[in-house]
Amino acid sequence: MTVPAALQGLDPLTGGDVVVAQNIAFGILSVVMVVAALRMVTTRNVVHAALYLVIVLAGAAGIFILLGAEFVGVTQVLVYIGAIVVLFLFGIMLTRGALGEDEEANTEKRRMATLVGVLVLVVTGGAVLDSFGDTAVNRSAPSLTAEIGDTIFSQYIVPFEAVSVLLLAALIGAIVVARTD
């Protein structure tokens, strides 16, 4: 376990201005994301939780762009923030007042969840640090959207079709489950 090597990730200021700027951007984004995520799972107001989720998702979009995956970043904004969060807000609206504000009564459950969460963090973090050491991300150029399109429609055509069928099935399933009759 080489913890120092991982922490070095934030401070190699030797790689020129771009690297510095990227590292600063990453630092800001990651702090914002982790804080927002923590607030999301702990806040008692469900609407606030949805807004914190927006912050985390936007941060993830930023991370994608930082990694040179512009198309994924834009899709993240469009689909996640544009569609899925709106869906969540509808869900919240339709189930308003379904739950009393007596969350703190269940401390035992929280303790268990904290325990499991920390366990997950320790094990995955440990595994990551153990495996990748100081592999660097030095992408020479952002990935091209055209290349993504080509690959999806040739190499990944079958999974792509499968996903489209899945979406259709989910659409029908959602209607069947939620209809009133």
């Binding site: 459950k109 268990m112 499991v116 366990l119 997950v120 320790v122 995955t124």
Partner: peptide
């Protein structure tokens, strides 16, 4: 959720053992 907690915890313990 209790089942999920057991699932996650045991998966992580097994992963840890593997590591």
């Amino acid at each position: 959720q209790d089942y999920a907690a057991i699932l996650f915890a045991s998966a992580m313990v097994l992963a840890g053992v593997l590591i």
